[in-house]
Amino acid sequence: MKVIFLKDVKGMGKKGEIKNVADGYANNFLFKQGLAIEATPANLKALE
């Protein structure tokens, strides 16, 4: 799943980066902790 990092995550990515991560990792950790959001077309447009 493609995500946009909202904060730096050690060993994974930096704020503003777009990366592919495992679905479970994104849903169970990154999204719940507020560290990333899904890289949807609307979210990608908002990032620009």
Rank of each mutant, 00 (worst) to 15 (best):
F5W: 01
V21I: 09
Q33E: 10
A42V: 09
G24F: 14
E48H: 15
A46M: 15
K14F: 13
L35V: 06
L6Y: 02
K2Q: 09
D8H: 08
I37D: 01
G34L: 08
V3S: 01
N20I: 15
A46W: 14
N27R: 15
F5S: 00
A36K: 00
A46E: 12
G24A: 14
Q33T: 10
E38P: 12
I37V: 12
F29D: 05
G13Y: 07
A39Q: 01
K7E: 12
K19H: 10
N20S: 13
A42N: 11
K15P: 06
N27F: 15
Y25T: 10
Q33F: 15
K7V: 12
F31G: 01
D23N: 14
K14R: 13
P41K: 09
I4T: 01
L47S: 06
Y25A: 08
G16K: 02
K45F: 09
A46H: 13
L35Y: 08
E38V: 06
N20R: 13
I18K: 02
V3E: 00
A36H: 00
D23W: 15
A26F: 13
K32H: 08
E17P: 00
L47Q: 09
D23H: 15
K10D: 14
K15W: 06
K19F: 07
K32Y: 08
K45Q: 12
G13F: 10
L30Q: 00
K2W: 10
K7Q: 13
G24Q: 13
F5C: 03
L6N: 02
P41H: 09
G34C: 13
K15E: 07
K10N: 10
K2H: 09
A22L: 12
F31L: 11
E48F: 12
Y25I: 14
D8P: 06
A39H: 05
V9Q: 02
G24H: 15
E38H: 08
N28K: 12
E17K: 02
K32R: 13
G34N: 09
K14W: 10
A39D: 02
N20Q: 13
A46F: 12
K15C: 10
L6E: 01
P41G: 09
E38I: 06
V9G: 01
L47Y: 14
V9P: 00
A26G: 05
M1Y: 08
F29N: 05
V21P: 00
F5Q: 00
G34Y: 09
G34E: 08
F29E: 05
A26W: 11
V9C: 06
A46D: 09
D23Y: 15
A39N: 02
D23L: 15
D8Y: 07
N27E: 14
K14H: 11
L30R: 00
G11R: 05
K32P: 13
G13K: 00
A36V: 09
L47N: 07
V21H: 01
E48N: 12
E17M: 08
F5K: 00
K45L: 14
G13H: 05
A42G: 10
V9F: 04
N28R: 13
N43I: 09
E17T: 08
T40W: 03
F29H: 09
L35P: 00
V21N: 00
A36F: 02
L6P: 00
L44D: 02
A39M: 05
D23C: 15
G13V: 03
N43L: 07
Q33I: 09
A46R: 14
L6D: 00
A42Y: 08
N20L: 14
I4H: 01
F29W: 14
V9N: 01
A42P: 05
I4F: 06
G24N: 14
K14I: 10
G24Y: 14
Q33D: 08
D23M: 15
K15N: 04
A22E: 14
A46C: 14
